[in-house]
Design a protein around this nucleic acid. Structure first.
Lengths: 339, 339
DNA sequence: GATTTCGACTGAACCGGTTTAGTAGGCACA
DNA sequence: TGTGCCTACTAAACCGGTTCAGTCGAAATC
């Protein structure tokens, strides 16, 4: 089946290719009557502009890129990315932008992907996930002048646009809630060290712990997987003076922690309170359901997409602060039983 | 920053654009010495061929498409798609193919996306997920002659290539295992009605139930969400002559079912055995861990990608049968307690 | 009535690759 | 010495859009 081109439309309308281009793109240069006639013909023959031709002559590729740098097994289990993607998609498809996805093995590969995309002119802009402290990707994107929106922050985003949420505030709110319940020994199972939001949460945890006068406020680093979450939990619960509450950096680790606690004969929430960061549907499926810090991830993605489209259009944009995660108390948190 | 083009390379090498093209693409027409010189220059200046220009003149866009037609909340929670994507990616990126992702609202929108992609020449081929009985997408793709690989089957794939696994056999194996443990009343919480694999599993369930002489073999339809899985479970367990074992069409519903059983005071596996289809890491995080039907989803995706690339290259391909899911017994299945 | 202006449109260049047709030079063979 | 053939290249067309520089006729201006 032959794809219709503007030349076909031009022939049928008895005008030149240029006139067709003007008509279809809403540019001045054709009369309203001719424009309508051309649009009608285009619709009739089911015309879609060849994206390659458009990208080659015009400015944009009408596509944006997202490179994900996490191993497959973690990607699968984290609802975060899929929810983010679906939010991003909503904005993009409304403007007929395509999303190009690439899974990469490490930050160097990711940087190589950006350089390739830029060289190939395959994308007009990119999303940057999993921001790190002094992230090496940032200067590369600045150098390439590739429009980019960093998903994360605040800070360490250089001159790039960003979308971020105040994790420190959310964590402090959670700790105050636990303290109000009577907890004095609170632990935290953190995400991948080196990720900016892990560091931000870690710092906030220490500071709030001091301010609230906790007896104990220990962070154990982890990697978002259930296995590591379970291991960290065993370590925390096996030690003397074990915590009465644990905050997990994602829901998968929290669920694993819950299983470990039950396995060790500890009652949740009687002996141990559990809070999960990221409130996916999973948190409501456990027994007891998990108290969780949640926010609207698809909306977060949508904001990021809007920022990126604005950046591509050359509009001046900066950091956009998204809503702060809010705590949904469920059955996994309660006052600690008297020791 | 200016992107280098083959004209830049040609100038520096003192040859024509054509020679550069031959050299970089491994075509005959240049001497080995010249080829090496050109390749060296290309590397030195960091050349990447403009994908639009290549797509416009040559045949391929060097991209394939994947349209996902599921609501955001289900997409997020299902590890299946992300694992599939990461497997697909592995094959694609090895051949420098890009993956274009689009989330759509319904099958009509999905068909529209295929037509647009085809018209725009944006992709060289597509993956088709969630195959339905008499799927309307199949004839459209055949008409467009857009290379496609259906992920699912067998049957209902028309002339399109496909990758499938024998779900019926896996289900029968599972039922035989449960019968061997002593179960006579087995229920099933199914996936979305209308999806081919749901129908195939449903049919196999009924047939095997009869063949094995079960007292009861009831399927309750569901939609893969935890809420629906919980509701279906309550319905099954609340009725008289409740089943002693339930097979769930995905892991999320199985986890929800486990929580419901515990909530109702039933011991798992003592009073109720539970089997999950799709063995994600979640299955090992529950208490007890779930017996699950698992297979290597990234490998499945990789096979699909290989099939699609072959189809794009015009090689004759048909249906590829992937490994059958295998049962991993864990703590959620045991002999039923004497009634 | 001559000149300017403007709207509506055309023709051609251009984007950066691939590919086809053509050519120059070297060598073998009669 | 001429013919044929091969290798190693070049020039130019082409893909399908966008856009720039004109052109043409009609209306507006003086």
């Amino acid at each position: 089946m032959k794809r219709p081109t503007i030349a076909d439309i031009a022939r049928r309308a008895g005008v030149s290719k240029g006139a067709v281009s003007y008509a279809l793109n809403g540019q001045p240069g054709v009369s309203e009557a001719t424009r309508q006639r051309i649009i009608a013909i285009a619709q009739e023959i089911g015309f879609n502009p060849n994206s390659a031709a458009r990208a080659l002559s015009g400015a944009t590729a009408n596509a944006v890129g997202l490179a994900l740098c996490r191993p497959a097994r973690i990607l699968g289990i984290e609802p975060f990315f899929m929810e983010l993607i679906s939010g991003v998609e909503g904005e993009l498809s409304a403007r007929s932008y395509a999303l190009t996805l690439q899974v990469v093995a490490d930050p160097d590969a990711e940087i190589a992907v950006y350089r390739r995309w830029w060289g190939e002119r395959r994308v007009d802009g990119v999303f940057v996930c999993d921001l790190r402290v002094d992230d090496r990707r940032v200067p590369v994107l600045e150098e390439l002048q590739l429009p980019a929106v960093v998903i994360g922050g605040p800070g360490h985003t250089g001159t790039l646009a960003s979308v971020w949420a105040d994790d420190a505030a959310a964590l402090v709110e959670t700790m105050e809630y636990l303290v109000a319940l009577g907890h004095r020994r609170i632990a935290r199972v953190g995400g991948l060290p080196g990720l900016l939001h892990t560091e931000i949460r870690g710092k906030a945890f220490v500071e709030a712990g001091e301010r609230l006068g906790l007896e104990q406020s220990l962070t154990v680093p982890s990697d978002y997987t259930g296995e590591e979450g379970a291991r960290a939990t065993r370590r925390l619960l096996g030690a003397a003076g074990r915590p009465t509450a644990i905050i997990y950096d994602n829901d998968v680790m929290a669920i694993a922690g819950l299983a470990v606690a039950q396995e060790m004969g500890l009652a949740v929430p009687g002996d141990l309170s559990i809070v999960a960061w990221d409130d996916s549907a999973l948190c409501q499926l456990t027994h007891p359901p998990l108290t969780a810090l949640g926010r609207d991830i698809p909306a977060y993605g949508a904001h990021a997409a809007r920022q990126l489209l604005a950046a591509i259009e050359g509009r001046e944009i900066g950091a956009y602060q998204d809503e702060t995660a809010h705590l949904t108390p469920r059955g996994s948190t309660a006052a600690p039983s008297p020791a």
